[in-house]
Amino acid sequence: MKAFLASLAVLIAGSVLFFKATDGLQALTAEGARRLAVQREAPMVSSFMLETMKGSAEPLPGAPGKAVMVEFIYTTCPTICQSAGGDMARLRDLVIAEGLGDRVRLFSVSFDPDVDDVSHLARYGELHHADGEVWTIARPTVNDLPALLKAFGVVVIKGDPDTFGGYEHNTAIHVISPTGQLSSIVDTDDFDGALEALKRTLS
């Protein structure tokens, strides 16, 4: 009987711990936890000054009243960021088609400002047809970079040199509300999810 009670107690305590540790079985990975936390808490994002592909300065989050969608890239990326660039272009087109072009700003922000100077940013923009109107490519200052990545929960690590991967990071689209709150994180190819999150923050 004692043994049964002890086992039962451990079973209950362990299950509660597991439940807590996974946010109610909803997030097993750090990335899942990050997205869940953003959805629940919508934290404020402090403002960073970026340099755009046109060489001008622009704050992130941007002008008040405008929602922002951000993804993080590095322009010398051979693989995933290139497809993310295509995804972002498609997202821009969808946003314009929905008539939301003047209420939202799209950023592809480089986390490799050492290499990605304005000419790199401009070339990347040209490659993916970013004209700077709705969607622009930008970079933070080297000093701001750690704080910027931390604010968004993005982890960048050096890639495997054998496979030409410069960096790997948790690729996603971050949706910031007009009030400057990080309200949603979705996959770069989840267009429906991104648009839905955008409409939610604008309504």
């Binding site: 004692k2 043994a3 009670l5 002890a6 086992s7 107690a9 451990v10 079973l11 305590a13 362990g14 299950s15 711990l17 597991f18 540790a21 996974t22 997030a27 097993l28 990975t29 750090a30 899942g32 936890a33 982890v155």
Partner: peptide
Amino acid sequence: EWNRGGVATLLVAFFTIIFWMLPRSID
């Protein structure tokens, strides 16, 4: 008596292992 058959302590080990198997714990 509390640990007859070792079940209670094995369960402790089991749940601790499960916790450390979560990728987010490792991160």
